[in-house]
Amino acid sequence: MKINENTLLEGNKVVLVPYNAEHVPKYHEWMKSPELQQLTASEPLTLEQEYDMQRSWREDNDKCTFIILDKQQWADSSVEEEQCMVGDVNIFLTDPTDPTLAELEIMIAEPSHRGKGIGNEVTRMMMSYGVTKLGVKTFEAKIGLNNQVSIAMFKKLHFQEVSVCEVFKEVTLGMTVDESVRSRLLEDTADMKERDYRQTCSNRREQVPQ
């Protein structure tokens, strides 16, 4: 999605950046994992297909993707951005007749970064972005029935069970964004900073010791 191609979102533990070509090799390595393939219901792709996917996620109007960076690592300007990658988060506008309905998907790919509240923070940041920038009024999350950690996280964020599909072995959780939800989201993400991505990258490179 073009809207976020120069957007950086900074939270307490993470930095969200646009999914660029330089992120693809590490993303491709992640997706070789049978565990991640199962958790994300994904098929393994070739590196060339992964680059094609990255381009489509950048260009398509129904997909908004950010790469999740570890903020502590990213704060060290001598560390390459790709080395700070820990996962990704997506909003898919799945219904052409209803642009206010969005499917939310999050992946913490690095095992060492799971169980630290990162998924919770990223989900709230992405929901806030979806509500304020994309006009989302209803969120859905489709999660494998065996992924109890993700199901518990979304329920903790007040998502409700909508349906269970035994064929695909997944549960759909949903949330309607009324005024109270919107207010809570904006309050929860009041510390989130939105920055110019290219300018921030340029400033970060200038800080690297020569």
Rank of each mutant, 00 (worst) to 15 (best):
M153Y: 03
C201Q: 11
R182G: 05
E29C: 08
V136S: 01
L16W: 00
D52W: 00
M85F: 07
S78M: 12
I68N: 04
D88W: 06
N90P: 11
E103H: 04
S202V: 05
R55H: 04
N12G: 05
N203H: 08
G144S: 13
E5K: 10
R58S: 05
V24R: 00
E187W: 10
G115W: 11
Q83R: 15
P25A: 05
L93S: 04
G135N: 10
H28Y: 12
P111L: 03
M192G: 02
K193F: 02
Q72D: 13
E80L: 10
V15S: 09
D62C: 13
Q54F: 06
N146S: 12
Q73L: 15
V167W: 05
G135T: 09
L45D: 01
F159V: 02
D188V: 00
P44L: 10
E206L: 15
K26Q: 11
Y51K: 04
K71M: 10
C165W: 02
L39N: 06
W30T: 02
K156R: 15
N4T: 03
I108V: 13
V89W: 02
L186Q: 13
T189N: 06
K142V: 14
N20I: 12
I3S: 12
N146V: 07
N120K: 15
Q54G: 11
H113L: 09
I68C: 03
L93V: 06
M1A: 14
S150F: 01
H158C: 02
L185R: 07
M107P: 00
A41K: 01
M1K: 07
L16N: 02
T94C: 09
D178A: 04
V24P: 00
K71D: 06
V89M: 08
